[in-house]
Write a protein that binds this DNA or RNA. Structure first.
Lengths: 201, 201
DNA sequence: TCCTAATTTGAATGATTGCTCAATAACGAG
DNA sequence: CTCGTTATTGAGCAATCATTCAAATTAGGA
């Protein structure tokens, strides 16, 4: 084997996530990418094929990381609804000086909304990922129902869509510069939404 | 007075709304604008100053039209909550062949999410407009409370933010290709969210 | 019917876009 | 140390970007 690649693919993808998450797809130029990933066009195109290829791979990695974060909070709280709410609080509250997260809004939703039409590959990918997340929520809620956390008559897939709508809603709302107290209240209100779904003890 | 302008400013703005609403700001080129508004660069720049100027004016007009639509539905149903829900159903259901609306997602939210940073004028404008809408909801809910539609202990500003979050959420969710039945169910579920806020008769 | 002021046109601007590729550099195998 | 293979570089590509402006056009007032 001759010369081995000197760049770290995972680190490059992470930098791409941070960049695209913040600036979106169309407003990000190759110059931005070269600077942020510290790679020259030749290496970039050898590694990722195109700007769009890099973006799609970054979006996949972003979603995987998000799913990991959610599952972590579900594991820590021992319940799907408490877990998702804890995730949202962790994501949206008291993270002003934290590194890593660049934007309250979800990168997948940002991509969905900035895609230009139904033929746009970005829209296809974003739609697919949202469906995957919906499926994950559905499965988790089914488990929760079996464990007696939820009422027996709950339609889990339907509830998953309501849950996803809440996540999409708050995260977008948070982008509009709401303060800590407003977000706190809003998250409390969203919490209450799911009272009718919770099993009574 | 010499030569009078031959283009219709209102029609031009409407075309700009349709174009920007569908494709967003950064993915829309001046060539697209020239074609869709049937105007040449000279006229465009004389009339609107810049691409950004045109966009900001279009976004203002979009919001005004949206507020008109919501108020219309509130007037027709004789209640704030029924009105907003009727607006969402009208916007998201059975409009496949309708002209005018280009996208389920809100153009203001799309703008907020595609803005690149806090210094971006697009973000400032989108934030401002969302606050205006929140204020409109707050005022309408205050009236509803005074009219006995809502419980006396309801915090109207706080409820307005929850309502706005729901609107942002469903409209974004609808963009991900949900079918009629799924949207119907989701809108029903969102309707139920506000049961605890409604006055009991 | 001319004059005058405003509008419209479209070619041209320099900058930037995403991307290519020939040249150079760096590594492991022999 | 040399060879062969691959990674990296960065100048340069055509195309497109938003924008400008001088010239042509169009109208109303005199």
């Amino acid at each position: 084997m001759p010369r081995v690649a000197q760049y770290d693919r995972k680190a490059a993808i992470d930098a791409a996530i941070a960049l695209f998450w913040r600036r979106g797809y169309y407003a990000t130029s190759l110059k931005d990418i070269e600077r942020e990933l510290d790679m020259r066009p030749g290496s970039l195109y050898a590694a990722f094929g195109s700007k769009q290829g890099l973006f799609l791979e970054a979006l996949d990695a972003y979603t995987a990381a998000m799913e990991r974060d959610v599952e972590e909070h579900i594991g820590a709280t021992g319940g799907v609804l408490p877990g998702v709410m804890a995730y949202l609080r962790w994501l949206l509250l008291g993270r002003d000086s934290d590194a890593g997260v660049t934007t309250p809004a979800c990168m997948v939703v940002k991509t969905l909304l900035e895609s230009t039409d139904d033929e746009d590959p970005l829209r296809g990918k974003a739609t697919l990922l949202l469906r995957k997340v919906e499926q994950g929520f559905t499965d988790a809620l089914e488990q929760a129902k079996a464990a007696g956390e939820l009422r027996a008559n709950v339609d889990c897939r339907r509830m998953a869509r309501l849950l996803q709508t809440q996540v999409m809603g708050v995260r977008s709302f948070a982008q509009s510069g709401a303060n800590e107290q407003q977000l706190q209240q809003l998250l409390d209100d969203i919490d209450s939404i799911f009272s009718p779904y919770r099993a009574v003890h």
